[in-house]
Amino acid sequence: MSAEVCETVSARLPIPDEASTLPINPGLAFLAITCVAADTAGRVFEAALLVFRGDRVEAVFTTHHVLDERRTQA
């Protein structure tokens, strides 16, 4: 179970290398999503950078919280 997950979503214009790799018009914005998950000791166990064309993406985020059942039992 992770202790902390940090996600950042941003929209910006691509640099020339990104525009040619995707390939998109340099004047078309794209969506960049970064995600870093760490355990309770602060050790990162998952990291991701996702880049999408701004005219062809929809981002949906769902978070499921797992409760510690030992705490909820009387």
Rank of each mutant, 00 (worst) to 15 (best):
Ser2Leu: 08
Ala3Asp: 12
Cys6Pro: 00
Cys6Asp: 11
Cys6Val: 06
Glu7Cys: 02
Glu7Trp: 03
Glu7Asn: 04
Val9Ile: 10
Val9Phe: 09
Ser10Leu: 05
Ala11Asn: 05
Arg12Leu: 05
Pro14Lys: 01
Pro14Ile: 00
Asp17Leu: 09
Glu18Trp: 01
Glu18Gln: 03
Ala19Gly: 04
Ala19Pro: 01
Leu22Glu: 04
Ile24Pro: 03
Ile24Met: 13
Leu28Tyr: 00
Leu28Lys: 02
Leu28Ile: 01
Phe30Ser: 00
Leu31Gln: 03
Leu31Asp: 03
Leu31His: 03
Ala32His: 05
Cys35Tyr: 01
Cys35Ala: 12
Val36Lys: 15
Ala38Gln: 13
Ala38Met: 12
Ala38Thr: 15
Asp39Trp: 07
Asp39Gln: 10
Ala41Tyr: 14
Ala41Met: 13
Ala41Asn: 15
Gly42Leu: 10
Gly42Arg: 10
Gly42Met: 10
Val44Ser: 11
Leu50Val: 05
Leu50Glu: 12
Val51Asp: 06
Val51Glu: 13
Val51Asn: 09
Phe52Gln: 12
Gly54Asn: 07
Glu58Asn: 12
Glu58Gln: 13
Ala59Lys: 14
Ala59Asn: 14
Val60Pro: 07
Phe61Ala: 14
His64Gln: 14
Val66Glu: 11
Glu69Gln: 14
Glu69Cys: 04
Arg71Asn: 09
Ala74Gly: 08
